[in-house]
Design a protein around this nucleic acid. Structure first.
Lengths: 122, 122
DNA sequence: GCGGATACATAAGTAAATTATGTATATTTT
DNA sequence: AAAATATACATAATTTACTTATGTATCCGC
């Protein structure tokens, strides 16, 4: 409706979540078991109320890398005429996810210490 | 003491804070007014209990960029025979810091939603 | 006087995104 | 019914934002 507003407010907020995408995907798969790529982007968008929009150029190459590394395994299914590639954590992937979550929590706590020095609980 | 342990546990946790360095520095300057680079690295290390270690290769080029952009201004002082380059926020920098802090909080809230879906408060 | 800490700086290399593009089907809008 | 948007995958080129490595120089403790 207001395309020209993009010149004033071009949604930079660039890339705060750089480096967090992998743990985010691992967490999603840990919580929801079995998901396809597009579904992940939609769920993250919904959960974060539109804040985090995962781009396809970031998502798919990362999923492929995780598959190569044996962190996730895939099953391709047809939904009508349309393909869906479902991803789920392997046993090694679940282990890796626990490690990633510990790192994530430590990182988030560190951010709290810096951004909310008063209220942050150590 | 155990240098060889680095082969097993090489502290990857790579770069979760990629993209967060700028808002972190802005927050430090907002809270402490006037700081020099090395002091920032030490304070962040202390506040985060050793979690976040800002490298010099990341710090100084970023500080120079912020100065170019008029976000910070500098005063060079001598401490004995050793130089310290003090940074402080300009008026524009304070405005920019407020924006960065809002983005940071939204980002942290989003991470909470994903990593702690039950306890996170929207 | 040697190593480690303090204090700055910059260049080369790399990881992880963004942006752009492509294919194809399904659904909604006009 | 045509056009636009949403669903669903994929990859290449580019950019960003770091790490790693290197350099200079002073200060302090042993």
């Amino acid at each position: 409706m207001y395309p020209q507003i993009m010149y004033y407010c071009h949604m930079k907020k660039s890339s705060l979540y750089k480096g967090c995408l992998e743990p985010i995907l691992l967490r999603l798969l840990k919580d929801h078991g079995r998901m396809y790529g597009y579904q992940m982007t939609q769920m993250v968008k919904e959960i974060t109320k539109g804040e985090l929009n995962i781009t396809e150029g970031a998502l798919y190459p990362l999923l492929h890398k995780l598959e190569e590394q044996g962190i996730v395994e895939t099953e391709t299914e047809m939904n009508g005429n349309r393909m869906r590639k479902y991803y789920s954590l392997t046993k090694a992937g679940k282990k890796q996810t626990n490690i990633a979550m510990d790192e994530m929590k430590a990182f988030m706590q560190s951010l709290e210490f810096i951004v909310n020095p008063k209220t942050a609980i150590g």
